[in-house]
């Protein structure tokens, strides 16, 4: 019997070229992340103190996005708020993804009645408007950023659970899963070593889109007063604090509003870009 070696030239992974638009989205996301990580170190301390003499100044060379009613620089407050907003969103998505993965795994691995029960629970979760439920939770726990995060984490999992459970069921039809069963691997090992790692791809795509969505919901919760409270530089709270000045000083509301919209859209687009790149039928991998 002759010995054969692995092919020397495994096919190179194909990559799709980035369009200028895709590049712009990725650069924007990087800028947002850098702002969230390093921004607060550069922000002047004056954004946390009031300077009434300088209040409601329009955008200028000194204050790029103008100043708010307390005379604080709007631009630097947005930079400082990026950390709160993005970090909280990451936390929310991570937490509910963990819940979703757990529920999906138990549903996919468990007996049919348990699967049915968990999926009906998921249906209920999907049917309830998560914003309203989060509102109720946050109100019950007392309005604060922490309650908003917890409320969103415990209401956000149903889409993840539903999606992942479907993918896992599909993966369980693979021959290599039958192969592992035939080999006698335990249920636990089957799920964690064979099924789950081959099903998680889809969550990477979903993750980016979810961040965008969460940024929006979190800002909304803060805006209606159950999330972060003024004087926190969190964007929703900032808009809430400035909403009385829409007609007299538009920049105090429009600038943080634009920050929320742009961030939300940028992460959503990032999700699409990753999806195209990972979908073999579209030439990615």
């Amino acid at each position: 019997m002759t010995t054969v070696s692995a092919m020397s030239g495994a096919p190179r992974r194909r990559r799709l070229a980035l369009s200028p638009f895709d590049t712009a989205v990725i650069v924007l996301v990087c800028v947002l992340l850098l702002a969230a990580v390093f921004g607060p170190f550069f922000a002047p301390d004056s954004i946390y103190t009031s300077d009434i003499a300088n209040s409601l100044m329009p955008p200028s060379a000194a204050n790029w996005f103008g100043t708010d009613d307390q005379g604080r620089d709007v631009f630097w407050r947005l930079v400082a708020g990026a950390r709160t907003t993005l970090l909280s969103s990451f936390l929310v998505v991570t937490l509910y993804s963990l819940i979703g993965v757990t529920i999906a795994t138990v549903a996919a691995a468990g007996p049919r009645w348990l699967d049915e029960a968990l999926m009906r629970l998921t249906d209920i979760g999907l049917a309830l408007p998560s914003m309203i439920v989060a509102l109720g939770f946050a109100a019950a726990m007392g309005p604060s950023l922490k309650s908003a995060i917890i409320a969103m984490a415990i209401t956000g999992w149903p889409t993840t659970a539903r999606l992942l459970r479907g993918i896992m069921r599909q993966t369980m039809e693979s021959q290599f899963v039958a192969g592992a069963q035939v080999l006698g691997v335990s249920r636990w090992r089957l799920m964690t070593k064979h099924v789950l790692p081959n099903s998680l791809d889809v969550l990477i795509v979903k993750w980016a889109g979810d961040i965008g969505n969460t940024v929006l919901v979190l800002a909304s919760l803060s805006f209606i007063g159950v999330g972060a409270q003024p004087p926190s530089p969190e964007w929703g709270a900032t808009i809430a604090g400035a909403r009385g000045y829409v007609s007299t000083a538009w920049w105090t509301v429009v600038m943080p509003g634009a920050a929320v919209a742009i961030t939300s859209i940028a992460f959503g687009l990032l999700g699409d870009i990753i999806q195209v790149r990972r979908d073999p039928s579209l030439g990615g991998n």
Binding site: T2, V4, M7, S8, G9, P11
Partner: peptide, 10 residues
């Protein structure tokens, strides 16, 4: 026949 047919890139 030992081995396998070569890939077009190899």
């Amino acid at each position: 026949i030992p081995g396998a047919p070569p890939a077009p890139m190899a």
